[in-house]
């Protein structure tokens, strides 16, 4: 019994250290964001919350000139949401359709095509960022949401996950649907999509977080302030802080950081059940 207690204590200690190690920086960022610029400049990072929470966040989100020259924090939040959602939804749609074609339409190139798609996993966006920019600029889509999202929505990971899932769906379901007079499109919409519900949710969540955290692509793509995402905004605010002669507004930079981490955290917290279900089980 005593031995067991020790084991419990040890494992818990290790876990707690891990939690502290990972969450402490976030806490310090939050605590610091609630202090005034003067306090931070005089005393450095703060561990305990201060009294400036409301004014700082209000200014960061809703006051013109609060964080950027003209754009509001809330606008950047909206841009980030559009990018995150567009990125995730686009990826799910494209990769589901690709996987559907690869698994259910037995054309000769299905397997080679799948492996080519799969190999693009080895090529991150950074490798093709110049040509992609050239294409988007040629289409006149610079500084638009479409130009920001469309080049990113092909997804090898998503295609792979959906392919594996579709392969596990029994053939008899397709045959029953064919006898029931379902068209290729009907089978996809009526049977496959509902069956993939949890899978779709899991991929949506992962991709939303990835899309939300995109940095390099939006940085290159957006030149106008009103198209900045939060992640870009954080980078820019430090630059503005460094350039200007006035008192550095560190508390607002920290506020933006906290705002930028909140949505992905919320999404994962709220949907974690779906997330786990989608990755470990499926209703068939």
């Amino acid at each position: 019994m005593k031995q067991l207690n020790w084991r419990v204590i040890t494992t818990h200690t290790i876990c707690i250290i891990g939690v502290i190690f990972m969450s402490l920086p976030v806490w310090i960022a939050f605590a610091t964001s609630t202090h005034s610029a003067e306090t931070i400049l005089r005393n450095g990072l703060q561990f305990w919350p201060g009294s400036d929470f409301l004014p700082t966040y209000h200014e960061a989100l809703f006051v013109e000139g609060g964080v950027m020259k003209s754009v509001l924090g809330i606008t950047m939040l909206k841009n980030s949401l559009i990018l995150g959602l567009g990125f995730a939804i686009g990826k799910v749609i494209i990769s589901m359709l690709a996987a559907y074609a690869i698994v259910y339409f037995r054309f000769r190139l299905a397997l080679p095509l799948f492996w080519i798609i799969f190999m693009t996993l080895l090529l991150p966006l950074e490798v093709r960022i110049i040509p992609s920019y050239e294409v988007v600029s040629g289409l006149g889509l610079l500084d638009t949401h479409a130009g920001l999202i469309i080049p990113l929505i092909a997804s090898a990971t998503g295609t792979f996950f959906f392919r594996q899932f579709f392969l596990s769906v029994p053939d008899e379901l397709l045959e029953a649907a064919r006898l029931d007079g379902a068209t290729a499109w009907g089978f996809f919409i009526d049977i496959l999509v509902p069956l993939s519900k949890t899978m779709i949710a899991a991929i949506l969540i992962i991709m939303f977080v990835v899309g939300w955290n995109q940095y390099l692509w939006p940085l290159i793509m957006t030149t106008k302030e009103e198209n900045y995402t939060l992640v870009i905004g954080i980078k820019q605010i430090y630059q503005i802080l460094a350039d200007g002669g006035e008192l550095p507004q560190y508390q607002k930079a920290f506020a933006l950081t906290i705002l930028a981490t909140l949505p992905p955290v919320l999404v994962v917290l709220v949907f974690q059940n779906w997330f786990v279900k989608g990755l470990v089980e499926s209703e068939k």
Binding site: E175, A176, I191
Partner: peptide, 9 residues
């Protein structure tokens, strides 16, 4: 069908 092949959803 042998395994019924009912639409599970």
């Amino acid at each position: 069908f042998q395994n019924y092949a009912l639409y599970p959803h």
